[in-house]
Amino acid sequence: MNFKQLMNPIFIFWNLWRQRELIVQLTKRDIIGRYKGSCFGILWSFITPIFMLIVYTFVFSVVFKAKWGVGSDSKVEFAMVLFCGLNAYNIFSECINRAPGLILNNANFVKKVVFPLEILPIVVIGSALINGCIGFLVLMAGVVFFMGILNWTVLFLPLVLLPLLLLTLGLSWFLASLGVFLRDIGQVVTVLISALLFASPIFYPITAIPEELQKLFYLNPISYIVQDLRRIFIWGQMPDWDWLLAGITIGIFVTALGHAWFQKTRGGFADVL
């Protein structure tokens, strides 16, 4: 299989589509395994975001009396805006943090010639996305209950998340492969992902950053995604169409590059493991 074919988005997504039944089965297993042995099981996917939303609302609306400064004057606006950004970040961080150990933790699949190792990052993304969507449902309920609004623009959620998912998939393929050959990469990724939380406008608006530094923050794709999510959920605004076009293009390129890297290096996995 030549490099051009490995970089072809049509070939990549068609190949993944052919494996959809296996991807669904493994995703279900991943979700069930996460809560195996717990009393509430899958209900924790609802309990955790509801609890965090209550905590954010209390801390920021009652203790700090904080407001984001735009949109609604509701006392809980800061909590809703913050939760919106954190939920998107959690989808990305969960996948990227798990990526370096994907092949190492599934070494039994490496020697199975017929097993498509490239679907492992898809399984992790599917699991994280399901939890993320539950979080967005909780957010929507919170916006309706606390702020008394329900914006039709939430229908753009799949489109707004698309650049994030494409970027996550490409990076996951790259890190899953790299994690086999460089075991320390997992520790490096953990540190970088923690830093990314504070380098993204999640706890603060982009306008709070000095104007001369804002361009640096806009180099971070998460900044655009977080702001678009707030537009469609909180303020009832349209997404940034220019960013969506650029973000999807960048995401497809990163996905193709990550896929090509993974497929070119997978031949050495068995020798290292």
Results as ranks from 00 to 15, higher is better:
1 M>W: 05
1 M>R: 09
3 F>K: 07
3 F>H: 09
4 K>S: 14
5 Q>I: 12
6 L>K: 15
8 N>A: 10
9 P>T: 00
12 I>K: 08
13 F>Q: 05
14 W>T: 06
14 W>E: 08
17 W>V: 11
17 W>F: 15
17 W>E: 02
19 Q>T: 06
20 R>D: 05
24 V>D: 12
28 K>H: 09
32 I>D: 05
34 R>T: 06
35 Y>S: 05
38 S>K: 07
41 G>H: 12
43 L>S: 13
44 W>Q: 03
44 W>N: 00
45 S>D: 13
46 F>D: 02
51 F>H: 10
52 M>W: 14
58 F>R: 07
60 F>Q: 03
60 F>P: 00
61 S>F: 01
62 V>N: 15
63 V>Y: 15
65 K>D: 12
65 K>N: 15
66 A>I: 09
69 G>T: 09
72 S>D: 06
75 K>E: 13
76 V>D: 03
79 A>K: 00
83 F>K: 02
84 C>W: 00
85 G>L: 01
86 L>K: 01
96 I>M: 04
96 I>V: 10
97 N>F: 03
99 A>I: 13
99 A>M: 12
100 P>M: 06
104 L>M: 11
104 L>D: 02
106 N>T: 06
106 N>G: 08
113 V>S: 14
113 V>F: 10
115 F>H: 02
117 L>D: 06
117 L>P: 08
118 E>Y: 13
120 L>W: 04
124 V>C: 06
125 I>E: 04
129 L>R: 10
130 I>C: 10
131 N>Q: 15
134 I>D: 12
134 I>K: 04
146 F>R: 07
150 L>N: 03
150 L>M: 11
153 T>A: 09
153 T>G: 12
154 V>I: 15
158 P>E: 05
158 P>A: 11
160 V>C: 09
162 L>M: 13
162 L>E: 04
163 P>K: 06
164 L>C: 10
167 L>R: 00
169 L>W: 12
173 W>V: 03
176 A>T: 05
179 G>Y: 03
181 F>R: 02
184 D>R: 08
184 D>C: 08
195 A>F: 13
196 L>W: 11
197 L>V: 09
202 I>S: 01
204 Y>M: 10
208 A>V: 08
208 A>P: 01
209 I>K: 11
211 E>R: 12
213 L>E: 11
215 K>Q: 12
220 N>H: 08
223 S>P: 03
224 Y>A: 12
224 Y>M: 06
224 Y>G: 06
225 I>V: 10
227 Q>W: 06
228 D>L: 14
231 R>F: 07
231 R>Q: 12
232 I>L: 12
235 W>Y: 14
236 G>T: 02
239 P>N: 10
241 W>R: 05
242 D>P: 07
244 L>N: 09
244 L>P: 02
245 L>D: 07
245 L>P: 07
249 T>G: 15
251 G>Y: 05
251 G>S: 09
254 V>A: 13
255 T>L: 13
257 L>K: 06
260 A>R: 03
261 W>T: 04
264 K>G: 03
268 G>A: 14
270 A>V: 11
270 A>D: 02
270 A>F: 03
272 V>D: 00
272 V>E: 03
272 V>G: 00
273 L>Y: 02
